[in-house]
Simulated assay, not measured.
Amino acid sequence: MRQQQQRCCYCNEPATLLCDFTLGRPVFDRGADGKSRPFYTCDLQVCRAHAEHRGTMHVRLSHSVNGRRGFFDTTDHCREHTGQQSRVPTPRITEGEAERLRRVVRERAERRALDSGVLPVPRSTADQLDLF
Score class of each variant (00 low, 15 high):
48 R>A: 02
29 D>A: 15
119 L>K: 02
103 R>P: 00
104 V>I: 14
80 E>A: 03
53 H>W: 09
111 R>C: 03
66 N>A: 15
33 D>T: 05
123 R>H: 10
27 V>Q: 08
18 L>W: 05
58 H>N: 12
66 N>C: 14
95 E>M: 11
83 G>R: 07
36 S>A: 12
11 C>W: 02
27 V>G: 04
66 N>W: 11
5 Q>N: 12
86 S>L: 06
117 G>D: 03
33 D>G: 06
36 S>L: 10
64 S>W: 09
41 T>G: 07
91 P>C: 08
72 F>L: 12
14 P>T: 02
4 Q>S: 08
110 E>M: 12
85 Q>D: 15
88 V>D: 13
112 R>C: 00
117 G>Q: 06
2 R>I: 11
91 P>H: 11
24 G>D: 01
11 C>K: 00
95 E>I: 10
128 Q>E: 11
75 T>Y: 08
125 T>F: 14
73 D>T: 15
45 Q>Y: 06
23 L>G: 02
127 D>V: 09
79 R>Y: 00
2 R>Y: 14
118 V>W: 02
80 E>L: 04
17 L>G: 00
103 R>S: 13
21 F>K: 02
78 C>K: 01
63 H>E: 14
98 A>Y: 03
93 I>Q: 02
115 D>A: 07
81 H>Y: 01
13 E>C: 07
58 H>S: 14
13 E>Y: 02
1 M>D: 09
55 G>P: 06
57 M>G: 12
52 E>P: 03
45 Q>E: 09
5 Q>I: 13
47 C>Q: 03
68 R>H: 14
121 V>K: 07
86 S>Y: 09
84 Q>K: 15
122 P>S: 07
4 Q>R: 10
